[in-house]
Write a protein that binds this DNA or RNA. Structure first.
Length: 144
DNA sequence: CGTGAGCGA
């Protein structure tokens, strides 16, 4: 006489893109040393340059720019692509006007979906000055 | 094969 209530079938329907499944390596034990707690996930230094990864192969710079412009003033955005093939490498860089906007952009776009793929936004690592001068030869030519 | 970790012309 009891009707079967089967209304719980719309669960676990996560719009998950095929592939790219994060492997959660759960440590079954916690080291007695509390010093290991600082090695969980060391964030990079706060910078206006943001490193965005997890981008789709079809995602372009404009998509990145418009996606991150919602959380701050994006000074410049670029999707790393190969000059030889011309295809996107799968990651890009977004530069905000200030660091506070950069943080807002990370907290606002990190772990979000873009073009059907989960993207990750974090501070980019500092880089040496761009070699505007295409001087053929190694910079350290004839080091003492 | 545009494959999927990763840091750029």
């Amino acid at each position: 006489m009891a009707m079967r209530v089967a209304a719980a079938a719309a669960a676990a329907a996560v719009a998950e893109p095929r592939g790219l499944r994060r492997l959660f390596s759960i440590s079954s034990f916690i080291p007695p040393l509390a010093a290991a707690a600082a090695a969980a996930s060391p964030p990079a230094e706060p910078s206006t340059n943001l490193f965005v990864s997890g981008l789709s192969k079809r995602t372009t710079t404009e998509k990145l720019y418009e996606a991150f412009s919602q959380f701050g003033q994006v000074v410049h955005a670029r999707v790393v692509t190969d000059r030889v093939s011309g295809y996107s490498k799968g990651f890009g860089f977004v530069k905000y006007a200030t660091i506070e906007e950069a943080g807002a952009g990370i907290q606002g776009m990190d772990g979000k979906f873009l073009d059907g793929w989960v993207i990750f936004a974090e501070y980019a690592k500092p880089r040496p000055p761009h070699p505007q001068f295409e001087n053929s030869g190694t910079p350290s030519y004839g080091r003492q």
